[in-house]
């Protein structure tokens, strides 16, 4: 994965969600995990990398391309990535199948038959073959998130960005979604994800970054055993306690 941030600042009003962040993902990393307290800048970093927002300062490089600031180029960038939100965000007026087909038809320009074939395949892969024609309101949270994941990977994205994919789910549904993500990791999909599931981050991520108050506090998987910063130690010991 090629992902690099140089002096990236993102402001929301007066507060800086990210403050002059420099980050270079080491070579060979396929799965990058972002951890840290809520409001620390994880979502903002993902939204910037996904081209959903534009930084106020600094440059972001994804896969060798420096992200532009104009909407047309950003749309191109978004088409090459998959993005999954915490709150599923399926389109409520479409069935699961239509949700996955929409980007294939409209964005990729596939014929309805091709799009249907590809969409069914993705949904079947995530165990949703019985729910193809159901609308989001008829699906459980876990099923919705798996359908949203199917939509995100249907167009074979270069990079899959997952913003706290299980935060809105109960433990059982969390497990069913994490299994699917783990499978994607095993298949070699490049993924950046933010999560509060420390065990999961530790298991699947090749590299982790700890963000707090809009800054990178510490990075590297060694932080799970021996974090250098007290803030990281405190955070990890607290979230791992129960």
């Amino acid at each position: 994965m090629k992902l690099e941030l140089k002096g990236v600042t993102k402001l929301y009003g007066e507060t800086a969600a990210l403050h002059e962040v420099d980050l270079t993902v080491p070579a060979g990393v396929r799965v990058l995990g972002l951890i840290g307290p809520s409001g620390g800048g994880k979502s903002t970093l993902l939204r910037l990398a996904g081209g959903l927002e534009v930084p106020d300062a600094g440059t972001i490089t994804v896969g060798g391309d420096v992200l532009a600031r104009d909407e047309a180029t950003l749309t191109e960038h978004r088409r090459r990535n998959g993005f999954l939100f915490q709150s599923f965000n399926l389109f409520p007026h479409y069935t699961a199948l239509e949700n996955v087909m929409l980007p294939l038809r409209v964005v990729q320009g596939k014929s309805p038959a091709e799009a249907r074939e590809a969409a069914e395949q993705c949904l079947r892969r995530f165990g949703l073959e019985k729910h193809l024609l159901q609308r989001p309101a008829e699906l459980s949270g876990g099923q919705q998130q798996r359908a949203a994941l199917a939509r995100a990977i249907a167009a074979r994205p270069r990079l899959l960005i997952l913003d706290e994919p299980t935060s809105a789910l109960d433990p059982e549904m969390t497990a069913e979604v994490l299994e699917v993500i783990e499978e994607l990791c095993r298949d070699g999909q490049e993924i950046v994800l933010s999560t509060h599931e420390m065990g999961f981050a530790r298991a699947v991520a090749d590299h982790v970054v700890f963000l707090a108050e809009g800054r990178v506090v510490e990075e590297g998987k060694q932080i799970f055993e021996a974090a250098a910063h007290e803030q990281v130690q405190r955070f990890l010991s607290r979230v791992m306690k129960y």
Binding site: G50, L52, E71, T75, R78, R79, F83, F85, S87, N89, L90, F91, P92, H93, L102, P103, V106, V107, R151, A152, A155
Partner: peptide, 27 residues
């Protein structure tokens, strides 16, 4: 979040209106 989602799958502004916003708004 619906508009975010539409942008995330690569829809342009007018496609977002056509496929996501208008059908839901009409209902």
């Amino acid at each position: 979040s619906q508009i975010d989602s539409a942008r995330a799958i690569g829809l342009t502004g007018s496609q977002t209106y056509r496929y996501v916003v208008i059908p839901q708004a009409v209902r």
